[in-house]
Design a protein around this nucleic acid. Structure first.
Lengths: 168, 168
DNA sequence: CGAGCGCTTGATTGAGTTCAAAAATCGTGG
DNA sequence: CCACGATTTTTGAACTCAATCAAGCGCTCG
């Protein structure tokens, strides 16, 4: 469950990592030097608090970036693992191509939206927003992970879904 | 309360904006092309939700960056105004110096920490964390703004402070 | 002095947690 | 393909934290 395969493609500088379901790209406390562009599959980044509870920070499927957003070379504060067999391209945090400036901005924008949602929206609103934002991801992860992403318990999500279904 | 003075310093490319207390650097819906490095004073960025409630996104004092983290040229989703008479340096989002890559990373890191706090910590913990992180800002803003930053009501913060004081 | 604003305090309400147990789903080995 | 155990989802009751509603206090400023 721990081995990560690394392959250097021949025709370009692009490195490819294959990550099997359940494997980790990073653990809390490990040195974080890369950001990962997801080519295929689905990954998540998350923390575990003092009580042992998981809090999913971000999901990342095709085209998304998954990263622990600490400074290059600092110890990471997130776990990153694969929810499906996946393929990612590691991008160095030290000297990324200038074209990645745009991507960095985009990432910040996503975080900003997430904070605004957490602060100003109810669990129901956050769930509906999640459905709109990640229509493809909903079917691919268990409810309890969506709950963790929304910042509520699986029980609360279940109840909430029941009420939304009834309300229609 | 609305006029923003703009001065071009002679010896360098560095632009300086003076912002009087209460003046806005940006309003929701306006085009957002700059990020602001705070030279002096104190500013805040915030949203207003459907119910008219303010949610402070970030404070920024000397050395910090205050920004609406949308893509260059997009419409902003935050208000930014000055809580004290301030001086800022606008940094273009389009072609920032490469040295700012580091700052961008730092900004993302701050956002990540904020999300983790919002998701995993109680109001008391968030308040204590705020005190540690911004010891200088606490004395400079009214309680109700700290409450807004923490994501709770001023009443809840008052109660919480009373209990912390008693508990010592 | 009075009006307005901000902070505090208390009572009530409500959204979400925790605890517990039943029902549904998934995965694996036979 | 079926059966079994394990995990996930659902449902319900009791509880908790923070929101809301409301009133009172202390300040400042006109």
């Amino acid at each position: 469950m721990e081995i990560i395969y690394e392959i250097l493609s021949l025709d370009s500088e692009e490195k490819i990592k294959q990550v099997k379901k359940g494997e980790f790209l990073q653990r809390t406390g490990e040195l974080s030097t890369s950001v990962f562009l997801v080519k295929k599959g689905l990954l998540r980044s998350y923390t575990i608090d003092e009580k042992g509870k998981e809090h999913i920070f971000m999901f990342g499927s095709e085209g998304w970036i998954v990263a622990d957003n600490v400074l290059p070379g600092e110890k990471g504060e997130l776990f990153i693992d694969a929810l499906e067999d996946s393929v990612v391209t590691p991008i160095s945090k030290i000297s990324p191509p200038k074209s990645d400036f745009q991507k960095l901005h985009k990432r910040i924008g996503v975080l900003q939206k997430r904070i605004i949602m957490l602060m100003s929206a109810s669990a129901v609103d956050r769930y509906n927003h999640f459905l709109e934002t990640y229509p493809d991801i909903v079917q691919r992860v268990p409810q309890r992970m969506i709950a963790s992403y929304l910042g509520i318990t699986p029980q609360a999500l279940s109840t909430l879904r029941g009420e939304i279904a009834k309300g229609k």
